[in-house]
Design a protein around this nucleic acid. Structure first.
Lengths: 192, 192
DNA sequence: TCCTTTACAATGCGATCGCATCGTAACCGG
DNA sequence: CCGGTTACGATGCGATCGCATTGTAAAGGA
């Protein structure tokens, strides 16, 4: 019945353009026409695949969220079997910082959506579950260490959040950010 | 020569409206007309006191930055003379979190401007000096404690940044945020 | 008193926005 | 081969945007 185009792929192409734009100029710079231009397609096409701008944005956000999660999974998989908790947590958190090349592209987009969540509760809600899962996982990994694992996990995630922002706006440099994170990891899990 | 109106006061009234709007709907929701409506004045008036929207936004941001700094100063002053470093640092950082009533109003505005700084380098630059000063001060206060004061200070500020965001989007609750911060302060400065 | 300056209010302009509508080429089951 | 569905491209609409322009009431110095 469908003609022969891959609906999902078209949507992802457009989502790609949304992310490039959002990362470059922020969510305000994302208009249907700009997205179409960035993607090199007509505005009619964009409208054909997304009934509403809002739906397009939500799809783009979900797409990039999944990409980040997949990069995390890949990083973890690269550690081999039953890696030490410190390496595991570090791999996860480092992937959120704009340090590696793909992360440098994704982080501004995530930050932009995160900022919008402040004034758009529905967006905040959609991030809720993922954030909660991550926090519980980190808490569990810290579990064995002394101290209060839940509070340490919350602090670690807040650090990563803060470092991401400050890296993006150039208030800290990548080396300092990594040192800051590793310093805390050393403290929590014991020096590597 | 000037008629009899207080130029500065008028500008602050308008800046106030900008902040209310920005906190409620984000920076995208801030248009000249909306600002005028929110302030209960005509759009002509807004244009009379700000030649450009951008200038208006910058003024609003500077205004609220100064207000936060003053609240910090007040909080510190309330500690009496030569307070312990932990209390000093805590007073500063707690004022940045949306916990007290005035901070709850200011934090969303700060977060919004901070987010815009990601795609507007000029804004990032204007925050640079203040952030640097704060970090150096916190570093100095930690100085006496063991460990690496600079890395701990960077971590603390990142934590506050992250907690602010997560509080605003409801990913952590105020009690947890305070516990998280105090836990780190206890660790750095020794339990109170 | 006149006249400049200030402090607005009102209106208009061109651009851009999200979205709806319409037309149409191409494929595909019957 | 043919009607219908798909996949667009093109165009238009009303709203809103930042900003420019114009009009004007009032205060203050000469």
């Amino acid at each position: 019945m469908p003609k022969k185009v891959d609906h999902g792929q078209r949507r992802e192409e457009i989502a790609e353009a949304v992310c490039r734009l959002a990362g470059r100029e922020g969510l305000d710079g994302v208009s249907l026409r700009q997205v179409a231009t960035e993607a090199g397609v007509s505005m009619g096409r964009v409208q054909h695949y997304f009934t509403t701008k809002d739906e397009m944005l939500r799809f783009a956000f979900r797409t990039i969220s999944e990409r980040v999660e997949q990069r995390m999974a890949t990083a973890v998989a690269g550690l081999g079997e039953s890696p030490p908790p410190r390496a595991l947590v570090r791999a996860l958190l480092v992937e959120m910082l704009p340090l590696s090349e793909p992360a440098r592209a994704e982080a501004p987009v995530l930050a932009t959506f995160l900022a919008r969540a402040v004034v758009e509760p529905a967006l905040a809600e959609s991030q809720r579950a993922d954030a909660e899962r991550l926090r519980e996982f980190v808490t569990a990994q810290i579990g064995a260490a002394p101290g209060n694992p839940a509070l340490e996990a919350t602090a670690l995630l807040a650090i990563v959040d803060g470092l991401m922002t400050q890296l993006l706006i150039g208030h800290v440099d990548p080396a300092t950010a990594l040192s800051t994170l590793d310093y805390q990891l050393d403290r929590i899990f014991g020096a590597a």
